[in-house]
């Protein structure tokens, strides 16, 4: 085969390799260099019950962001969850509430957000005051048994 053709094909091969590497990084592992196009909001939970980083944040079941960091608030001694919300979703009212939910019986935890009635909206750094913790099965059973005994 002509040397020129071989060179072009090898060039295409190397480009295919770079494209594959980029596709793996961005599409498969969700690696993004910068966090433009999103803003951070925070919420406190009494118990996050298995919520992990990269969990979805949803509004009416549609993903509007992801959980980026989970830490303990040293003053209040509760969990502090940092979420990144896509910047096109800029209409969430300041009195929105968040709840930790489970996808299916065995599925992962995610955060469900419900909007409130205020005109003021959530912006970078806002804290969502109204939060509901994850349901922990042992606590539920414990409460149920306690109620039964006290009857």
């Amino acid at each position: 085969m002509h040397t020129r053709t071989i060179e072009i094909l090898v060039g295409l091969f190397l480009i295919a390799g770079v494209v594959a590497a980029l596709a793996l990084a961005i599409n498969v592992s969700g690696l993004t260099g910068s966090n433009n196009g999103s803003y951070k909001v925070y919420a406190h939970f009494e118990n996050i019950g298995g919520l992990t980083k990269k969990a979805e944040v949803t509004l009416a079941g549609v993903q509007i962001g992801t959980v980026t960091q989970i830490s303990i608030d040293a003053d209040l001694l509760v969990a502090k969850v940092e979420m990144e919300i896509f910047s096109e979703v800029n209409y969430l009212s300041i009195d929105s509430s968040v709840q930790i939910l489970t996808a299916g019986l065995l599925g992962g935890k995610y955060i469900g957000l419900s909007v409130g009635a205020e005109d003021e909206v959530l912006v970078e750094g806002s804290i969502i005051e109204d939060s509901q913790s994850a349901l922990v099965l042992e606590e539920l059973i414990g409460k149920f048994l306690f109620d039964k005994v006290s009857e």
Binding site: S29, G30, T52, K54, G108
Partner: peptide, 22 residues
Amino acid sequence: SGSYWSVMQGAVDFYDDILNGV
């Protein structure tokens, strides 16, 4: 399709999984 890709992106780590594979 949204959950196919987002669950995948949540589970695959670039350094731990992809770079080790390479």
